[in-house]
Structures are given as structure tokens and as C-alpha cells.
Design a protein around this nucleic acid. Structure first.
Lengths: 333, 333
DNA sequence: TTTCAAAGGGTATACGTTTTCAACAATTAT
DNA sequence: ATAATTGTTGAAAACGTATACCCTTTGAAA
């Protein structure tokens, strides 16, 4: 592959001049510029991003750490990031961290080896201290879906407590007095916070949520089915079910229907996240919208901004609140 | 960030020795090795991937070009690639090309600037010649979901003609004599090939497929709804509908149900791809499985292999055939 | 004792860029 | 006419790493 030197030789100018042409530098005559450009075209010259990154200490790329790509939620996240990197001519380096400490760590470190100065990371397995440490090393380090007070201005996150509360309040306002909850079995923040919000709303309405009305399972379709099966097996009475996410909600609906229980006529179901499937499943899912794509774009912009030298403002954070999307899976009782 | 030079200085050895330690090189005593390693640990040394790539002319990364990340199909594709890159300690560079000539081209060129020697690309907008040209420049250039005879040994693709045929045959074997087709309005290969297969099967069964029974729309939920609406508006009689993909199938089902037509009791529906939503929608979709994740993994392995110097074998290609996944959206008539 | 090989380690160059500094030519002001 | 300025160009150093080549030491074989 042709290098700058080849071009310089062919054009009869120095390396410096060619470099200036490439970068639209100021100090080169218009005729020379034209000539060099023509030769670059002819020889199919392509600047070497690695050499460039080495000398400028800027990589023109952004690292993304997510859990698993096949999860629609993360696909949306990645898409949100991609839309802004494309606008800025920035390349994405992608790593999956599958919510495991070791893997997440390796993902970030690999990115660091590539000297990306901007990063959007979704980490649930790493502890606060480690992440704060990284944020000191990488100017454009931004967390998504996580809040760490120490680096609040680098966090783009969803208020899950409020989300949980909204969910429960909506069900209660629809007249439901006996609600069951299907939560995730993974003891990370998200399910705990959502559950906390639900509990708050229920207490505030002078209702109760016995432990027997809460089931924990894997946060997917199968988990939702299993959880609902268990709920039904205990013979508990409920008219509404609040699920941890849309996949679990969908699984719960399937299981209810398999037992001849009509949704939403006999039991209402609510999801969380509003990913694609919420629109596809029947009945269409009433759910909480997690604007992950928008948030991811925000995070990417932030990362790029910080990376370019702008200092994160103190006392600032980027909190989003989910909103109810009304569809067909819940009715007034 | 500490460099090799800093380490050398701190350890009182030369650059070469440190480099040897880093790469597990042969000519360094075990005590020196230990000492250097300890110092690297202490100083938090991280090799600079850019400098490395520059001197070795190997980038230890793989480029991926897809259409849009939020499409579940591509999310699966990316995931398939990721699973093998992770195993090989290779970093993913991701670019989206949104099925537009200009964007796809830019995506590949950016990857080229980063000197990735392995690439998995999904391109529908670029012509054969351009892609063949790229394949000559990049040793590990592999196409997914596309077949170009000239570089057959770099193509991992699905036999869409057979897929279309299987689909139609299955419907016919279930006793359906009047089938309608919902296809994609984009005039790329895939829909044409699937349609060709359908036509073959229908002709072979001595049935007919009038043009009025084929509707074209955008290959998503909305397109499926629209296409079905048009089909119903013409008053055409059919007992089965073959959709271009699962999203369109889902849209078609929605529209049918909205018109009070029971699926599958009155009209059967078949999808294609078997993405997530096929399991989530109601009734569960009978569809053709496109093993995209497996294929993407294969493509990534191939790309890495070719990139590492192994020459593509002549007269070899990587053709996959879809299989029917029987669920609930079609019944015997 | 001499000779030699092997092991351990250092020097210097190359990779492809960007950028600082200095030099030169041409133009304008004095 | 000379001095000052502007515009255009080149030489060289630097970025962080890998590696080919050379040097020294050591111990064993001759």
C-alpha cells in the first residue's frame, strides 16, 4: 500500500507538503495541492490510521462496551452510539463484556491499548472504584445505565426507582389491588431499584406486597414463563403482574394464556424497556419506555466532547426518566 | 501513560529486553523477566496497539460492516462475529453501511485506513466488481449473505432460492392451493431469489401465482401491515401468505386479526429468518431458520484464517440452506 | 590452554505519520 | 535601492514498538 513517501516522490515534493495536503493544511500552493491530490487519487493512497494515531495521540475512534450484542436492548444502545460516531467520522471499537467482571475488565483494557480517548461503557460487574479509576485515565470515559456519585457528570442513566413507582402507580390507578411482581434473579442494581419503586408506590397506596407475590428468574422469555408458573402454582391471587422487562412480560403472558387465563381480561401485565418485541407480542405490551437509543447518543456525544478537551462540568448528571407507553396488556378492573 | 522506554529505564535494561518480555520472546533470563514483569505491573504498563500495528503490520482486529445495528438480524450477525473474535483476542471495528452505496464504501475504506487485515462485510449496495477489488487488497476479506462466483471461497451465504421453494412446498403440502406472497420492495437479490424459489415450487405443483397475489412493501412490520391491507382490498382469495421475513409476517398477522380473520384458522402465515420476534408473536410464527449467527461465526473464522496467511481454497464456497421451523402460524387446510 | 557454542542482552533502524523550525522566493513597503 | 513581509517548501525529530544484528559472558569440549 502506497505511503506518504511514495506520493512525495512521485510528486517531487517533500513529505511535509504531502501531509499538509492530506490534512488540508494552510501552507501549500494551490497548484502543488492539486497535483499532489491527483497523484494520491491515482495511486489509491489511504492514510495509515495507526501511524496517525501514534503521532497525534488521537485515535479518531470511540470504544463501546456492552453486555451481549444479541440482546435487543444492547443492539439499540450500540445503534444510538453509531449514529453519532458516523456523523463525526469516528470509528467504533466494540467489545462485549457479558456482565462478568473478568470479561468487562479485559474489554476496557483492550480498548485502552488502542488508546481510544472516548468510551461509552455499560458495566454492571465492575465496582465503582475500578470505574472511577478508569475515568481518570480516559478523558472521554462515560458510563451508561449506571450512576456513580463521584463521577456523576460522566453518567447517563435511567431513574429506575421512579420507573418502578410509575409502573405500580399506573396499575393501582387502574384499580388493581393485588399485584404480583416478576423480577430478575441477578442481584445487580436495576432490579433492586425497580422493585424499590414498586414497593414505595404500593405502600403509599396502603396496599401490601407479600414476598410470596414476588418471583425471581432469568430476565428473559423463559424466565418470565417460569416465574409465572411458580406464581400460579402457589395459588396466589392477583389481577396484575409487573415484570422486570418486556421479555419476561412476554413469557408471563404466554404462560397465563397456556393456562387458559385471558390477558388482559383476567390478568393484566406490564413490561419495562419498550424494546421491539413489546409491539410485536399479543396483546401489545403496555410498558415503560427506556429511551436507550437517545441516551446512548447522548453518551456518545458526551464522550466525544470530553475527549476533545472539554472538561466535565461539576454537579451535573444525565438522568432520564421512563414514561408509560399505553398499549393493550392492562385494563381497568 | 508509561511506555516501553520508561519500563526499560526503571528496570535498568534495554528496550529490546522489555519488548521480549512483553512478547514472551526467547532471549531473556528468567530473573530479568520476572523483574521486568513486576515493574510493568507496578507502572500499569499497557502496550500501544497503534505503535504495534505500525511496526508489525498486523492490527489484531477485525472489521465488520453491517446495515443497521438495531435490526435484530444484524445484531445476531454481529454477535456471531463477536463470539469468535473474543476467543482470539481480536478487537472488533464496527461500521454501519445502511445499504447505501456511498456509506458502505466509506465504511470499508475507514476500515482499510485502520489496516485491518480481516473483514466480515455485509454489502448489498456495492457492485460485484468493487467488492472483488477490495478482496484483492485485504487478505481476510469475507462476504456474508452474498455470493459472487469470482470470489466464491470468500462468500458465506444462504441459498435463498431453495429457501423460497421449501417455504412454498411446505404450504402446498399442507393443502394450501391459493397462496399470496408479501415481498420486499427493495430490488436487491434476496427477495428476488426467494420469490424465484416460491414460483418454482408453485409451478411444479401445477398451481398458479398471479401477479395480483404478490405485494411489495418495506421489509418491516409496517410494510407487512400495508401489504396485507392491499391484498385484502383487492378481494383476492387465499388461505396462506408467505412473507419475505418475520417482521412482515408479524405485520400481516396483525392486519388479518384486525380484520377479524383468524390466524391460522382462516389464513395461514409463514415468515422467514427466525429472528427473536418469531417466538414472541402470537400465534408463534412458522418460519425458515436463517442460521445467521452460526454463519457469521464461520465468516469471522474464515476471515481470521485468510488474514493469517492461509490462502483461500479454490472451488470452495460456504453455502447454507434454511430449514423449516414449525410453530403455530400455519395449519393444514 | 584454546576454541566454540549457547545464552543473555544491547544498539540501531524501521514502521508512516505530524509538526516545528528554518530557509527560500516573491512581493510589498520604506 | 533596501528592508520587511508574506507565502511556499523542505529537513528533521518525534510518536512507541519490534527485530535484525552485534557483543559479551560462561561453561564445556577439544
Amino acid at each position: 500500500m502506497a505511503t506518504i513517501k511514495d506520493i512525495a516522490q512521485a510528486a517531487g515534493v517533500s513529505l511535509a507538503t504531502v501531509s499538509r495536503v492530506i490534512n488540508d493544511g494552510p501552507k501549500v500552493g494551490s497548484d502543488t495541492r492539486k497535483r499532489v491530490k491527483k497523484i494520491m487519487e491515482e495511486m489509491g493512497y489511504r492514510p495509515n490510521a495507526n501511524a496517525r494515531a501514534l503521532v497525534t495521540k488521537k485515535s479518531a475512534s470511540l470504544g463501546v462496551v456492552i453486555a451481549e450484542l444479541h440482546d435487543p436492548f444492547f443492539a439499540m444502545l450500540a445503534h444510538g452510539v453509531e449514529s453519532v460516531t458516523r456523523k463525526n467520522n469516528v470509528q467504533i471499537l466494540l467489545s462485549a463484556g457479558s456482565i462478568e467482571k473478568e470479561t468487562e475488565l479485559r474489554a476496557i483494557e483492550t480498548l485502552l491499548e488502542h488508546r481510544v480517548e472516548a468510551m461509552v461503557v455499560h458495566s454492571k460487574a465492575l465496582d465503582d472504584k475500578t470505574l472511577v479509576e478508569f475515568s481518570k485515565q480516559v478523558p472521554g470515559f462515560v458510563l451508561i445505565n449506571r450512576y456513580i456519585p463521584e463521577i456523576a457528570n460522566r453518567c447517563v442513566w435511567l431513574d429506575n426507582v421512579t420507573g418502578g413507582r410509575l409502573m405500580a402507580e399506573y396499575a393501582i390507578n387502574q384499580g388493581h389491588e393485588h399485584v404480583a411482581v416478576i423480577s430478575s434473579q441477578y442481584r445487580i442494581d436495576d432490579p433492586n431499584q425497580r422493585l424499590e419503586g414498586v414497593r414505595t408506590a404500593i405502600k403509599h397506596a396502603n396496599l401490601v406486597l407479600p414476598e410470596s407475590m414476588i418471583e425471581y428468574a432469568t430476565p428473559d422469555q423463559e424466565g418470565g414463563e417460569l416465574a409465572m408458573q411458580n406464581l400460579l402454582a402457589t395459588g396466589a391471587k392477583f389481577t396484575a403482574v409487573l415484570a422486570y422487562n418486556d421479555a419476561m412480560a412476554s413469557g408471563a403472558m404466554t404462560m397465563l394464556q397456556d393456562h387458559g387465563i385471558a390477558v388482559p381480561e383476567q390478568v393484566s401485565v406490564m413490561g419495562y424497556d419498550d424494546v421491539l418485541l413489546a409491539k410485536y407480542c399479543r396483546p401489545k405490551l403496555t410498558t415503560l419506555r427506556y429511551p436507550v437509543e437517545m441516551m446512548a447518543s447522548k453518551a456518545a456525544e458526551l464522550a466525544l466532547k470530553y475527549a476533545s478537551g472539554k472538561k466535565p462540568e461539576e454537579g451535573l448528571t444525565f438522568k432520564y426518566t421512563p414514561t408509560i407507553i399505553k398499549r393493550d396488556s392492562i385494563v381497568r378492573v
